[in-house]
Amino acid sequence: MTLRVGAHVSIAGGVDNAVDNQLEVGGNCGQIFTHSPQVWQDPNIGDEEAERFREATEHELAGPWVIHTSYLVNLCTPKEGLREKSLDSMQKEVDAAAKLGIPYVNVHLGAHTGAGVEGGLDNAASVIDELDVPDGVTVLIESDAGAGTKLGGEFDHLAGILDRTETDIDVCLDTAHAFSAGYDLSTPEAVDETIAEFDDVVGLEHLRYVHLNDSKHECGTHKDEHAHIGEGYIGEEGMERIVNHPDLADVPLALETPTEDGKGFAWNIERVRELRAE
């Protein structure tokens, strides 16, 4: 199986620049924002730059890309105004994905802010089912660290949203988030147990992407802070088993590791390649 690994790269100066940015760090797939994730903003992608992006991706990368939605999107919210903004933002992201030939749009469930777990999942499903998702695009629900009233920290939450929606959706598993949420990944045995539990509760057939990140915090702390591959609390043994686990061998990996201590995406991608037994 070809190792598909890349990073979350910038689209500054045009979305087509993301391909060169990915190649520069040694990646062959990866993730982008279509705009600043801190604000409500529409993707502004011209036809020509979209064509350049599609052609460069086809010729230069193994793929696939995934779009990460704005951090402001909250699918679980009981607040009507925020719900409508989230729905509008999500619709524009799936449309942008279709324009760019990107098969996945990744989103967090968000926080239920008092609606409760069941109410939050119901709210999220209703937003997803109002989307007009273009052919060839799939919404991925990302696992969360589970702080406060945020949903997605438990595999049951991911299974719950899959069960509730009439839309065909799938899942992105973030290793740092899962670890922080309480799923141990720090030893080969723990990785095997966690992947088996994911398969039992959610189903590996729904796992389309992995955000491969180590964690700066211990298992079960619900703290979301990423570390360099093999240098956090998941550690080298855990990371090595993750990238070599037979059930994950062909799942694309996108890194959201930090740039610090003289190490960036290139260092982390090379580390993943070193850990992968070919």
Rank of each mutant, 00 (worst) to 15 (best):
C219E: 07
G238I: 05
C219N: 09
P64Y: 15
G232C: 11
V9T: 13
E142L: 09
E154W: 07
L72K: 10
I234K: 02
I269N: 10
I269K: 10
G46V: 03
T57P: 04
M90R: 03
R54E: 03
H206M: 03
A145P: 10
R273I: 09
E130C: 05
S70P: 15
K263E: 13
H35F: 10
L207P: 14
A18G: 00
N74E: 04
Y209E: 05
G101C: 14
D261N: 15
S70G: 11
T2Y: 01
P37S: 04
A62V: 13
H222V: 08
K223G: 05
Y209G: 02
D47L: 10
E24V: 06
A111C: 08
G230H: 01
V107Q: 07
Q31N: 11
V15C: 12
D129W: 09
E240R: 14
A125S: 11
G203Y: 08
G114A: 03
P37E: 06
E225M: 14
D16Q: 12
P188I: 09
G220R: 02
V171P: 13
A249C: 08
H245K: 07
F198D: 09
T77L: 08
R4N: 03
F33Q: 07
V19R: 04
L100N: 08
T257L: 14
A254G: 15
D200N: 09
L185P: 06
H226I: 03
R164N: 07
E270W: 00
D135C: 04
D200H: 14
L23A: 04
H211N: 08
F33A: 04
H222E: 08
L248I: 01
E55D: 14
E193S: 15
A111K: 02
R241G: 02
A115D: 14
E274G: 02
K99F: 07
H108I: 13
E197Y: 08
G238R: 08
D184F: 11
C172L: 15
F53Y: 14
G6S: 08
H211E: 12
E58A: 14
